[in-house]
């Protein structure tokens, strides 16, 4: 799963990365947002159940819904 700051929340680290890329000559960069990536292994065969469990984990611990969005990719 990937956790990123919501669009309306300032991401100063992303801003610095974006500016640095521009300084390095990557003129076509328009925006960078920094986030977190979690690999979670579950002992669950039912895809729906797994998704539900991970969603709960996202809401309760891995993201703070006040400032962050999350996306889940099941494999």
């Amino acid at each position: 799963m990937i956790v990123t700051l919501k669009k309306e929340v300032l991401d100063p680290q992303g801003k610095v990365v974006s500016q640095t890329l521009k300084n390095m000559g990557y003129d076509n960069i328009t925006n960078v947002r920094q986030g977190k990536h979690f690999d979670i292994e579950l002992n669950e065969t039912d895809k729906e159940k797994a998704k539900k469990a991970v969603e709960e984990i996202c809401k309760k611990l891995l993201s703070n819904v006040v400032i962050e969005d999350y996306t889940i990719n099941l494999k």
């Binding site: 929340v9 300032l10 100063p12 680290q13 610095v16 703070n64 006040v66 400032i67």
Partner: peptide
């Protein structure tokens, strides 16, 4: 306190990092 939800909002990194 903000993480428990007892107080609203959140404390982000200082603007100038």
């Amino acid at each position: 306190l903000t993480e428990t939800g007892l107080l609203p909002g959140v404390l982000l990194r200082n603007k100038k990092l």
